[in-house]
């Protein structure tokens, strides 16, 4: 399998590419197991964003891995012990695919049978994600936000150098006219698709997270073809920074609004007179919050990484 090839390769570029392929294959695997939402996310995140970030960082490090002087015996021992423990654990597991496993008996039936009446959204994954376990998703949004803060603070560029450098960075693909035209045609479609995924998450696979990633991917495509400087004119880093916060605040704000209206935190039922309408409104708003934070953090990540590496390249020259 691809994973094995990754261990043996010294060429980091190839390794990153392989890991992208690995993610895409995982997405296929998830699809096969009926996890459409997960497949969607894995394809956009694992194969898309994380490969991009890896490539951006590769730009500034050596392409080839050094010869490792590792102690394979110790590592093999630890890994072997872990694997054995897990295999030992699998022996008593309910069989793959069997419908009478405990997880299909206890909590899940209520989601499958009652979520239509209680939340009113056909996509059960969305109703659990945004409503039953909405608090987890708030935490997840906060995790993304935290990652944004981490990267922003680590890869901060001071102001003067930024201005000097800004003028000197041309787009790498200035000459590719066909690509540029195609991209210009694609961009609105991608953004439109992002919006579709954002607001159609109730009915099909998708939702705030996936939409945010797709939106960011559109912007990143634009950046790659038209240069970082151009893209940064539209998306100022201070604006991006504020928007990341706004997304989280929107999500938490919905929760607080529910509290003020007399419900529990994130209890959307109280938002409208009719609980199901309230749920709809709540889910719409929190998904929007997730979408905003995810999109802005992803764009920020990409900008920070490429900016840092481009700067590095120029300093070296």
């Amino acid at each position: 399998m691809t994973a094995l090839a990754i261990t043996r390769m010294n060429d980091l570029f190839a390794v990153v590419m392989l890991s992208g392929i690995y993610s895409l294959m995982s997405a296929g695997f998830f699809l096969d197991l009926d996890a459409v939402d997960v497949a969607f996310t894995e394809a956009s995140v694992g194969a898309g964003i994380s490969t991009l970030l890896m490539l951006a960082s590769l730009k500034m490090v050596k392409r080839y891995e050094g010869k490792t002087k590792y102690k394979p015996m110790l590592a093999l021992g630890v890994v072997g012990a872990t694997a054995l423990l897990l295999i030992y654990g699998t022996l008593d597991m309910p069989h793959f695919g069997s419908a009478d496993a405990p997880i299909h008996q206890h909590v899940a039936p209520r989601y499958i049978n009652d979520s239509m009446a209680e939340v009113g959204v056909p996509n059960i994954v969305t109703s659990i994600l945004a409503s039953y376990r909405g608090y987890d998703t708030l935490g997840e949004t906060l995790v993304i936000f935290t990652a944004g803060i981490g990267v922003m603070s680590l890869l901060r560029v001071s102001r003067e150098t930024k201005d000097q450098q800004q003028k000197r960075v041309p787009a790498d693909m200035q000459q590719q006219i066909i690509l540029r035209i195609v991209a210009k045609m694609m961009l609105p479609l991608i953004l439109l698709f992002a919006l579709y995924v954002q607001f159609h998450g109730d009915y099909g696979p998708g939702g705030g997270f996936q939409a945010g990633v797709i939106f960011a991917a559109g912007i990143i495509l634009y950046t790659m073809l038209f240069g970082l400087s151009t893209a940064r004119l539209v998306f100022k880093s201070s604006l991006l920074q504020k928007l990341t916060a706004v997304g989280v605040l929107l999500y938490a704000g919905v929760g607080v609004a529910c509290m003020l209206l007399g419900g529990n935190f994130l209890d959307y039922n109280v938002l409208r007179h009719d609980p199901v309408h309230g749920q709809h409104l709540g889910i719409l708003l929190v998904e929007l919050g997730v979408g905003i934070t995810v999109a802005t953090v992803m764009i920020t990540l990409f900008f920070k990484f490429t900016w840092r590496t481009v700067k590095h390249k120029y300093i070296e020259q």
């Binding site: 206890h106 935190f265 994130l266 209890d267």
Partner: peptide, 13 residues
């Protein structure tokens, strides 16, 4: 005990 989102455990958090 506080049920987040108004969903009683174990369905909610």
């Amino acid at each position: 005990v506080y049920a987040l989102g108004g969903w009683a455990a174990p369905w909610g958090i």
